[in-house]
């Protein structure tokens, strides 16, 4: 009952062009049927993400560990709430990041869980930068 060959094949890596995404904006792409948020963070958002005391977080992880260095403005996360799988809404909630409408989990500008029942941070999918304005997810 595990995924069949065609499902696995359709889950191959995809490339996304980042150049049209302005600062402060974000897009949602689908990979393997999952929504992936790619956000172009503002200076302020990056600072907010880096200012917190990592040890005080429910799922401690530094912002640097969640983005690719040299591309600090790009946050790429799987937009699936780690609680029970709803899609959080971007730019909402008290941490300027994501807010899950289902049971009220709040994520910050680095996609880290700050409040609510979700146990862990929004997952970062495997991806790399092919060029400065293009990433490959998967």
């Amino acid at each position: 009952m595990n995924p069949d060959a065609s499902t696995i094949a359709a889950g191959a890596p995809i490339e996304v062009d980042l150049s049209p995404i302005a600062e402060g904006q974000d897009i949602k792409v689908f990979w393997r049927g999952k929504p992936i948020y790619i956000s172009h963070r503002t200076k302020k958002q990056i600072e907010e993400a880096r200012a917190v005391n990592v040890a005080s977080l429910p799922d401690p992880q530094s912002d640097e560990a969640r983005v690719k260095s040299g591309h600090d403005q790009w946050l790429v996360v799987i937009g699936i709430c780690t609680h029970l799988g709803c899609i959080p809404i971007a730019h909402e909630g008290s941490y300027d990041g994501f807010f899950c409408p289902c049971h009220g989990s709040v994520y910050d500008t680095s996609g880290r869980i700050r409040q609510g029942p979700a146990p862990s941070n929004l997952a970062v999918p495997p991806y790399q930068f092919v060029s400065d304005t293009k990433i490959q997810i998967g």
């Binding site: 009952m1 595990n2 995924p3 069949d4 499902t7 889950g11 393997r32 049927g33 999952k34």
Partner: peptide, 16 residues
Amino acid sequence: TLLWGGYSVGNPTLNR
């Protein structure tokens, strides 16, 4: 994943 038959709820899930 086994329940879904895919990476998210989708057609294989509906079928099973």
